[in-house]
Structures are given as structure tokens and as C-alpha cells.
Amino acid sequence: MSEEQGYFETPPAPGKIVVIGGGTGQSVLLCGLRRYPLDLTAIITVADDGGSSGTLRDYLRMVPPGDIRNVLAVLSNASQDFLDLFQYRFSNDAGFLAHHTIGNLMIAALAEKNGDISEAIQKLSTMMGVQGHVYPVVNEPLNLIARFKDGTVLRGEAEITAAHKAIDSIWVENTAGNSPLADSDVINAILGADVVVLGPGSLYTSILPNISVPNVAAALRVTQAKIVYISNIMTQKGETDDFSDSDHVKVINRQLGEQAIDAVIMNTGKVPEDYIDWQRWNEISHQVKSDPDEVRKLGAVPIMGDLMDLRDDGVFHDANKLADLLYQIEEDARNNG
């Protein structure tokens, strides 16, 4: 309707993108996406058991707060002074506070005060002016369990990552040894999305722990959203050595029980030889092999481009390039059904 008629047209609702993952890749991607008029939801792994997050998890029997903290920070409209304090990490000689961040301690305090991690995150989101929705995949800490190709089994994300061994299968349990379930907020976000994004991040420790939750996997199988996987640029030592883009997709589809991935964002840029400081980034092995024809055979559309951000003697995804691609995918999904 026109302004002359005395009222305005209702603006269209923003597109809905759900990002499922963990680690730095998820928060970096969300930082790029927040530039767009989108309704963003982050669903975050709770299997981390290392560092400050692992210590608070063990002592307070709470979900690990580190990845949640980073996502809250990148989606927050709080002042930079507050965010600098929120992300401040105590030094090595700070006694029992060593290595802890202020943000992790705030999340722990609110969780204890409210008796519920989800309510704590929502209150902190309001306090920080967070642009979007932030949910742990489940409201209790999860144990990540891996069976390796050599038949051995390890429990715990930190130990699995440190083993640098080829993984055969992976699953999650709660502390009682039972199969966990996600809350309705998580499931409804997946079912109501235009686009669901998996990654970027470690295949076995950032992505699979989330989709190993049974009702999350079920929601991904039935959602009408376009499911997009952001393939890693580099393989992870021991775990995904010699993996191609399609190898990553096969693992995800196997975990979900069907060919659920609709599109794969794949890097075509070549990592310069002798650029990476292999000692500093000792968890990576070499560049992921690009095989778009094999990706197509899995029922997914390859979306290709030079997506690299070369910095700090390492190679990362360029958050703005990823966000540009995902915004276009979201618009296409809404316009074309």
C-alpha cells in the first residue's frame, strides 16, 4: 500500500538461516552473516572438554561455555569496551582463574543462578543486545565417543582430536550414558529455516556431535530448508587425511542416514606452497581435494569459488565471501521455494 493511502506495506520478514557447528569457524561465519538483514540462529556443540570450558564443565557440571561465549560476542551490539572485557582471558599466573575468560564465568554464574543454561543464555543475549538466537544443541554436557579404524575407542573431544587417528564412527552420550535430545527451540529453528548451514569447522568434533543428537538428525531429514555444507579448506591430521570435498559429505550423510546435503560450498583457491606454519597449525595436514563431479553424484550442488583468507601463517575461510554466497542461497530458497 502507498504512503498516500495513510499506511505502509508491511516489510517482508527477514530470511532465516540456522548455523550448526562449533569452534572458531562458526563464530567467524556469523560475524559475516550479521551484515545482512537475516534472522540468524546459532546451534552450538556442547561436547568441548578442553581448556577453560572443560574445567567449568567438570566442576559445575554445565555445558562448556566457550563456543557459546564467542557466538554471543560476534552477534552482540554491546560496546567494544564491554566486549573486550567479556572476552578477556586471565593470564597464566592468575592462580585458580588462570586461562578462564570473563564471559565463560558470566555464563557459568547465570546458569547456576537460573538453574538452566538456556534461560541463562537468553538473559545474557538480552543484556548484550544479541542480534539473533543462540542455543546449545542440548542443555547438558555431552560426551563425544569415537571408534577408530584400528578398533580402539576414545571418549572426549580433546583426546579424540589429540589422537590424530582415522575415525570409523562417532556418537554422543549424556553424562548418564544415554542418548540426548535437543529442546523444541532447536528443532523448531531447523524446521522453520530457509537455509541450514553445517560448518565451517572440524568434521568430527564440531559438526558431527550436533547431528548425532537423534532428534536433530530427524529434523534435518524432514526440514524443507536447503541444507548447505561448507567444506573445509584443509584436512585434519589423522582424522581426514586425503579427504576430498565429497568424502566429507559422505560422512555427514552417513551420520544423518540419507543424502540430506543440498549444496556444498567448496574452495577453489590454491594454498600457496610453504605459506602455512605447520608447527603453529599442527592439527592440519594438507588441502582438501576438490571433486565437484563426485559431490553431484551425492545429490548436492557444488558452489565453488576462491574462499581463502590467508593470515597468521594459516589459511581460513573468508567470512564475507561465505556470507555473500549464503545470502544469495537464502534469497533463492525463499523466492523459488
Rank of each mutant, 00 (worst) to 15 (best):
E4H: 09
D93R: 12
N70C: 04
V295M: 01
R311K: 13
D241C: 08
N77R: 15
V315E: 07
H133M: 10
R147S: 08
A94G: 01
S202G: 09
M266D: 01
S52R: 03
E283W: 08
Y88G: 02
E140K: 08
V271H: 05
T55S: 11
A219D: 07
E294A: 14
P292Y: 09
Q236E: 12
V251C: 03
V288A: 03
A193M: 05
S290C: 12
K149Y: 15
E283D: 12
Q224L: 03
G151H: 06
M1D: 13
N215F: 06
F86D: 06
L56P: 01
Q80E: 14
I233W: 10
R57I: 12
Q259L: 13
L322M: 01
L83M: 10
V74Y: 00
A333N: 09
D241H: 04
E3C: 14
L256S: 08
S79E: 10
L191T: 13
I44H: 07
K123H: 11
I252E: 02
R296L: 05
A42N: 08
G21T: 08
C31S: 12
A109M: 12
G337K: 08
V197K: 03
Q328H: 13
V74T: 08
I68Y: 01
G337R: 06
V288W: 06
I44A: 02
S91N: 13
D241W: 04
K226M: 07
L191D: 15
E330H: 14
R61S: 13
R280E: 14
K237S: 11
K321P: 01
M266K: 07
T41K: 07
I276F: 04
S91L: 09
Q279I: 13
G151Y: 06
N77P: 05
V222R: 14
N114E: 13
V134P: 02
I211W: 00
I329N: 02
I303T: 05
L181Y: 15
R296Q: 09
S125V: 00
Q287I: 07
Q224Y: 05
A193Q: 02
T10E: 15
V222N: 03
G257W: 10
D306K: 10
S79M: 06
T101R: 03
A73T: 12
Q279D: 15
E4S: 13
P141Q: 09
V28G: 00
V130Y: 01
M127T: 14
M62N: 08
G15T: 09
